[in-house]
Design a protein around this nucleic acid. Structure first.
Length: 292
DNA sequence: TACCAGGAGAGCG
DNA sequence: CGCTCTCATGGT
């Protein structure tokens, strides 16, 4: 089975594939047999970390693997990013605590839809909802023998034709009309996701928050994870807690003050810094007690 | 069981 | 404006 797969390798340094895929920026990758199974575009893929490269396997020939390099951002020099981070104890602890953590570059529609579904949900539940949505409405993909079936993320056009009850059946609750409304604006052409690539970040953000179910936090997630605007700094409950505990342990700043602090303190790649704080907070600094 | 989750939108005053 | 409440569902 192994030999039947088509394979390529991306040389990397300081790339922690596991932390990256499990850091709450994407929701479809599953750890299996020392590697990771997932979908990029219309391709089932298996990714595996080795010391100096990421090994990529596909069930069918891939003439051009560059879409995988784009997704992984494997060519990015992480040290250059780190050098722009503020030189303070919390930030340095977060970087040391999450070596090789990266930002992926996801397809904007999948990223937008996924984060509309993320509001007030735990990551495990977001994953369940998205898995259901893909299984029911996504295009079936070719997978290797003995592997579980896989589906592409459903297109906006496909979701736009559904009824709200079809989406609620995927356990997304009050998020169903949001996702449906946004899918319809993209499907009917009144919102152009592609055009955001060429806008200044503040303008792209203004556009995104006109979509139903998209407020400041989700807009920033899409700008950061889907478009690569690395100044975007999503502020959620975890980041608020991180800023309070790590930077202001002796008092209780208002949310507005923390937003102001976040927008000025972390430099041109603030969004990247945010991912370190988020993952550090969730996995190390304030990890919930382990049950036995 | 009760609480809370990578929030947003509507309805107040 | 700024604040509060609600929204649906399931994990812990």
């Amino acid at each position: 089975m192994e030999a039947a797969l088509h394979i390529t390798r991306f040389p990397v340094s300081n790339y922690n594939l596991g932390s990256t895929l499990a850091s709450g920026q994407c929701f479809r990758w599953i750890k299996k047999d020392g590697g990771w199974i997932g979908v990029v575009g219309n391709h089932w893929l298996r990714l595996e970390q080795s010391p100096r490269e990421i090994i990529v396997r596909s069930p069918h020939p891939i003439p051009d693997w560059s879409f995988v390099a784009d997704f992984l951002q494997s060519g990015l020099d992480l040290r250059k990013i780190h050098r722009t981070f503020p030189d303070d104890p919390p930030m340095q602890a977060a970087v040391r605590g999450c070596p090789g953590l990266r930002l992926l570059r996801q397809e904007p529609w999948e990223c937008l839809a996924s984060f509309i579904l993320s509001s007030t949900k735990q990551i495990v539940q977001i994953r369940q909802i998205i898995a259901l949505l893909c299984e029911r409405f996504g295009e079936s993909l070719a997978v290797p023998a003995q592997e579980a079936p896989a589906w592409a993320f459903p297109t906006a056009t496909r979701l736009a034709r559904l009824r709200e009850s079809d989406l609620r059946a995927c356990k997304m609750g009050f998020r169903a009309p949001y996702l449906l409304g946004t899918a319809r604006r993209i499907a009917d052409g009144t919102f152009d996701l592609q055009s955001l690539h060429d806008m200044p970040v503040h303008e792209a953000r203004q556009q995104l928050v006109t979509l139903p179910g998209v407020g400041p936090k989700i807009a920033d997630c899409v700008l950061l994870f889907g478009y690569g605007f690395q100044s975007a700094f999503p502020i959620d409950v975890w980041i608020l807690k991180a800023l309070r505990q790590l930077y202001f342990p002796d008092r209780e700043p208002a949310t507005l003050e923390l937003q102001e602090f976040a927008s000025t303190h972390f430099g041109p790649h603030a969004g990247y810094a945010q991912q370190y704080l988020f993952h550090y907070m969730r996995t190390i600094h304030d990890a919930p007690p382990v049950r036995t």
